[in-house]
């Protein structure tokens, strides 16, 4: 296909008084992996729900694979795989059955189901656990099963809603390997996450959301260069000095962020510490490379405290 795999234009969704999504524009090119980054409450999950027809936009247009939502939502869903944030595996089933049931729900023809299930289990590297009960799986295996299950009908588009939330670092990197392989195979992936590192590792392209809209979009390295420059100056100093340095940096038009007891002044390549008053015996200085997390914090105002 020629157009975008996923397209949202001026999408608005309110829940009562709250505007969860507020004029969202987002295009995802076929075969790319886009990370939807944003703090909790930025509208990521609502966006995902609208793409699967589980929330209906108040206004704006949405399409997936050229199919208009919500009118052609069922056709679109047949060609999409969804890995939900909440684990919804059927506990009573075996691993193989959990996938088989979804092969039927996704209308894989009966004769092709055994092969489709084998393939999905291979993706999830759970072939050996086929006959085990879902109950017996570890947290990481359950996540892999959710991903394999979402791929049983060889979807063209995969939605991943916070795919590694709540998992330990080792399992997380194992899942990153799995998602990275899918991306290499050309599946279009939209992945919501609030882990910066996850987006940095996996996404070709990142959309940063805040307050229901996209506030920045691009390749992670370009976003860093554009919004926070190449270097950050990390300043450790007593609180009163930090306040003074912050004020001087802001006056000079430099983005800043607080992380615990230290202050980061961004675009550090453009000034010297003396310019922002960061001198003296009680001031500790360290230069580091600017990262996507700096962009995230500067643009969303989120403290980044819960960011891994």
């Amino acid at each position: 296909m020629t157009g975008p795999a996923i397209s949202l234009r001026g999408v608005v969704k309110t829940f009562g008084e709250r505007r969860a999504v507020d004029g969202l524009d987002l295009d995802i090119a076929p075969g790319t992996c886009v990370g939807l980054l944003g703090p909790n409450g930025a509208g990521k999950s609502t966006t995902m729900k609208m793409l699967t027809g589980q929330a209906i936009a108040d206004s704006g247009t949405l399409s997936v694979l050229g199919l208009e939502l919500p009118r052609q939502s069922k056709l679109a869903r047949a060609r999409m795989g969804v890995v939900p944030q909440d684990d919804n595996l059927d506990e009573d089933l075996t691993v193989g059955q959990a996938v088989e049931v979804f092969a039927a729900l996704y209308r894989v023809p009966r004769s092709e189901r055994p092969e489709a299930v084998d393939k999905a289990l291979a993706i999830a590297t759970l072939q050996d656990r086929r006959r085990d009960s879902v109950k017996e799986l570890s947290g990481g295996m359950r996540r892999r099963l959710l991903i394999g299950r979402a791929l049983v009908h060889s979807p063209e588009v995969l939605l991943l809603d916070e795919p590694t939330v709540g998992l330990d670092p080792q399992v997380r990197s194992e899942l990153w390997g799995l998602i990275s392989r899918l991306r290499d195979e050309g599946v279009t992936i939209l992945m919501s996450t609030h882990y910066i590192e996850e987006a940095e590792r996996l996404a070709d392209d990142v959309a940063v959301m805040a307050l229901g809209r996209v506030v920045a979009r691009g390749v992670p390295s370009e976003l860093v260069a554009k919004h926070v420059g190449s270097e950050a100056l990390e300043v450790h100093a007593p609180a009163s000095r930090l306040a003074d340095i912050t004020a001087r940096a802001v006056a000079a038009g430099l983005p800043t962020r607080r992380t615990g007891a230290s202050l980061s002044v961004l675009r550090a390549e453009t000034f010297s510490p003396i310019d922002v008053g960061a001198t003296g015996p009680e001031v500790g200085l360290r230069r580091r490379a600017a990262v996507l997390e700096d962009v995230f914090v500067v643009l969303t105002g989120d403290t980044g405290e819960e960011v891994a």
């Binding site: 056709l75 047949a78 909440d86 059927d90 996704y106």
Partner: peptide
């Protein structure tokens, strides 16, 4: 609790 319907509705099921 099981979020079963979230899974079903994400598939082509209304």
């Amino acid at each position: 609790y099981q979020h079963t319907y979230d899974g079903l509705l994400a598939a082509p099921v209304d």
